[in-house]
């Protein structure tokens, strides 16, 4: 079932090929309840399982060796979860705090409704990245798909590559930074001047995400035109 790693590394290894997911998540949740137990975990053979390491609420390090399915690290608090592979839809949905790091790419809805914390995707993120985000910071080394940051309320989305169609549709107060091409902006999303404070904000975000090979001044900034904040019939064509 589970095997304790050598004391020197103090890593708890869980093999999902033999350990039920429910047991893994249950044990990780117990650490938030009583505080005692290993702080560094390694999950092997995830084989695309859904809801791996979701609902964590303690300062843990969880390394996942392989690809995961839907909702990996969903609603994460405090923990750092690293996926050495690709992540399926809904990566770190509704994340509250902590960090979720993906070495590969992430499928659609990455960081959906996230309220805090940091998500870093080394590859690409698919459509609706940061949909309805509410305070999370998301840094994508590659590109994001269409409808990313749809109805994004708060937080920051950084895209080092390109963005798909309808970026920031119906955007509220989230900050969007894109280095590459934007296929199209969604309703009420506009390009805004990249002032010094934005370059500094972006520099900090990139540093936090461990990205040191891109120039923050090379990004463009997008935000809400705030024309749809109050429903007006004159804007009906925009909805």
């Amino acid at each position: 079932m589970t095997a304790n790693a050598p004391e020197a590394t103090a890593v708890e290894v869980v093999d999902l090929a033999v350990t039920p997911l429910r047991e893994l998540n249950g044990r990780l949740h117990e650490l938030a309840r009583d505080g005692a137990g290993p702080r560094h975990w390694r999950v092997v053979n995830p084989n695309g399982a859904h809801a791996v390491a979701c609902g964590l609420d303690a300062e843990l390090e969880v390394e996942i060796e392989g690809h995961v399915g839907y909702y990996c690290a969903g609603m994460n608090k405090l923990a750092t979860v690293r996926v050495h592979g690709n992540a399926g839809p809904g990566l770190a949905e509704n994340i509250m705090s902590g960090r979720v790091l993906v070495d590969g790419s992430a499928s659609q809805y990455a960081g959906a409704t996230g309220r805090g914390g940091l998500i870093v995707v080394q590859g690409d993120a698919s459509s609706r990245c940061g949909i309805s985000m509410k305070g999370v910071d998301i840094v994508v080394r590659g590109s994001v798909g269409h409808m990313s940051a749809f109805m994004a309320q708060r937080g920051r989305l950084v895209v080092c590559g390109d963005a798909g169609e309808a970026l920031g549709d119906s955007l509220y107060e989230a900050h969007l930074y894109v280095a590459g091409e934007v296929a199209g902006l969604g309703a009420d999303c506009v390009e805004k001047p990249m002032r010094d404070e934005h370059v500094e904000e972006l520099r900090g975000l990139l540093a936090d995400a461990g990205v040191d090979d891109v120039d923050p001044a090379s990004f463009r900034r997008y935000g809400s035109a705030r024309q749809l904040y109050t429903f007006k019939v004159d804007n009906a064509a925009a909805y």
Binding site: L21, R22, N25, G26, H29, H50, A51, C54, G55, G69, Y70, Y71, G74, M75, P89, G90, E93, Y109, A112, T113, R128, I131, S132, F150, M151
Partner: peptide, 23 residues
């Protein structure tokens, strides 16, 4: 919903909620 579409996704979403709350 922002992170699921259709009944197959709903099943997975319900699974996540159960995992978060330990069933």
């Amino acid at each position: 919903h922002p992170d699921w579409t259709g009944p197959d996704d709903l099943e997975i979403k319900i699974g996540e909620l159960r995992e978060i709350t330990d069933w």
